[in-house]
Design a protein around this nucleic acid. Structure first.
Length: 214
DNA sequence: AAAACGGGGGC
DNA sequence: GCCCCAGTTTT
């Protein structure tokens, strides 16, 4: 077992499980669009309300865009998200007969769906060999010293090369939870971090005489 | 009060 | 590549 594998095994045991459990492709797709540039705590509460009122693609495609916007309001960027969600619902219903596509190229065709969102659906719903890179995955992979990249696309490519496939599917949920509890963007809690002995960022900060965290 | 946070698309 | 979108949380 190399250092990356050891790190992941430790994180699996110490990081709390990701709260969003649905694997239903349409819901995961829409929830992930809502989650873009917003905290996932608020994402799931508004997604629940949305699906309660509009449980299917047909219902959602016929919903008033303003009403969708109102329901997802706390997530931010609500107008363009509402527009995209409504359009996605229409396409999934009319073009794909309610079956969310399971290929990257087709998913990327949908409005509001980029690499992160598409890869979330592929890995979480379809068990594909996909790595969903969001800012948590990007930041943490670089902090730990696994890779040295500056864009999410580079990160995805680099992780494909150094990360054993059996971890691809879970890496996003794992690092998201690690990122919100310990390895936060600002003032990470390195003093209580379970993998600091494998972390490049920690070693460097220590060398600089940095102490503790907030 | 101000700054940090988090994806995609249009140009 | 740069800039816009709109909230919540942290400092």
């Amino acid at each position: 077992m190399n250092e990356i594998e050891k790190t992941i095994e430790i994180l699996r045991k110490s990081v709390p499980p990701h709260p969003y459990k649905s694997r239903e492709p349409f819901r995961v797709l829409v929830a992930t669009i809502i989650s873009q540039r917003t905290k996932d705590e608020v994402t799931y509460t508004v997604a629940e309300k949305l699906f309660e009122k509009y449980p299917t693609p047909e219902k959602l495609m016929n919903a008033d865009e303003k009403d969708i916007a109102a329901l997802i309001y706390p997530a931010g960027f609500y107008q363009q998200k509402a527009k995209k969600i409504k359009e996605v619902a229409r396409i999934i219903h009319e073009k794909y007969h309610n079956q969310v596509p399971d290929s990257l190229d087709e998913l990327l065709t949908l409005p509001g769906v980029g690499r992160k969102t598409a890869n979330i659906v592929l890995s979480r719903c379809y068990g594909k060999d996909a790595i969903a890179v969001d800012t948590h995955v990007h930041r943490i992979s670089n902090r730990l010293g696994w890779i040295n990249t500056k864009t999410p696309e580079e990160t995805e490519k680099a992780l494909r090369e150094i990360l054993p496939k059996r971890y691809w599917k879970d890496i996003n949920e794992l690092l998201v939870m690690f990122g919100r509890t310990i390895c936060r963007p600002i003032s990470p809690k390195c003093d209580i971090c379970p993998v600091k002995k494998y972390c490049k960022y920690y070693r460097e900060k220590k060398k600089e005489g940095w102490v503790g965290s907030a």
